[in-house]
Design a protein around this nucleic acid. Structure first.
Lengths: 198, 198
DNA sequence: GGACTGACAGATATTGAAATCTGTCAGTCG
DNA sequence: CGACTGACAGATTTCAATATCTGTCAGTCC
């Protein structure tokens, strides 16, 4: 049976929504478009999502979570020294964002618009990422590699310090030549600030 | 004699332009408005600025330069240790931006719009600021306080790392409670990364 | 003679009427 | 009964006509 005749689920609606967003952009993507893409009436979409804003929020959360999940694997990798895990994690974050932005710039721009009209979702996403970072830094503090008194505060500082390499407002600079060197210089400086002297 | 009957100069036009921008905002401020505020025809304004874009650029540069000049004094203060000078300079940059944004939010929003439609002006402004920072860090490297091989690269890294506390795209977060502690945590981390061990 | 004006052409912005969209809900269909 | 439809009211967006603005330049006025 073709997928268009399967039961209407939240997941299928989210897939169709992402497709409509890709095609039409954030300003012109309507609930009616999503319903049309699924071959149902728009009333049916409202059975699964109370408002258009809730639908946009869900599809955006889904997109952000795809990044969080990939990074969670690195954060949890207990077989690497904390410093290397931190470097890997930051590099993976930068790489994930840069890849998303470079691969499909229009979809990235679309989600960038959605992200900053949806304060709550971003807040949760950032809390998730800084939580991962906190665990890496706490592990380093415990092993004696890092001289850190408050891992959570330090994690937020590291996250904010590297904003240029993951915050969408800097996306246009991610293709500039020399960006890799700038990233290395900053990570090197931060790691030296974290290291226990001795 | 009232100022409206003095000779028409570039400086008087810039003052009137800032006033018109403050009143009307960036989208609705026209060259005709500026001319009307000065009691002249708009043709006279074009005698001093070739295009509307050139006028906007000049008034924006003037605004940015007011910040640069204040910071230049701190960067040049040879009576303070490099580490303290760096802390003072970063704190002054944050304070200057936060003050501008908090004092007259509409004018700040106006200039924020102008700034990111005028790539060249911002680039020069950033080059100016990182130049000041480079001189502070180079002084620290020379005195043995900082362990740094390339002051210019390190200065850019420090500037970028503190973006959250001076880049207009984060302006709405500058009034959040706890922002001061976050700033201190980040500066502390960066300074530890710069310091020569020993 | 040089600073300034004001009318002009083409480009851009505003406006309001018509079209579309959001969110609801009584009713259909299996 | 419960998933789905489609017509509806009010809100929002589009579109085309209308008005304003940008940039020029021949001409005015000390």
């Amino acid at each position: 049976m073709p997928s268009t005749s399967e039961t209407l689920t939240a997941e299928r609606i989210l897939e169709a929504t992402e497709e409509v967003l890709r095609r039409h952009g954030p300003a012109k993507a309507t609930v009616v478009d999503v319903a049309r893409a699924l071959g149902v009436s728009h009333g049916s979409v409202y059975r699964h999502f109370r408002t258009k804003a809730a639908l946009r929020e869900a599809v955006t959360k889904r997109w952000l979570d795809r990044t969080s999940e990939r990074l969670a694997g690195i954060a949890a990798a207990g077989d690497r020294a904390p410093e290397q895990r931190l470097r890997d994690w930051l590099a993976a974050l930068f790489e994930a964002k840069r890849h998303k932005a470079g691969d499909d710039p229009e979809l990235f721009a679309t989600y960038t618009v959605l992200v900053d009209e949806l304060g709550g979702v971003v807040h949760d996403h950032i809390a998730d990422l800084t939580g991962q970072l906190t665990r890496i830094i706490a592990a380093g503090a415990e092993s004696g590699d890092f001289a850190v008194t408050d891992p959570a505060t330090t994690a937020r500082a590291v996250f904010q310090a590297t904003g240029r390499f993951h915050d969408p407002c800097y996306a246009r600079e991610w293709t500039a030549p020399g960006i890799g060197e700038e990233f290395e210089a900053l990570v090197g400086l931060l790691v030296r600030g974290l290291r226990a002297v001795g």
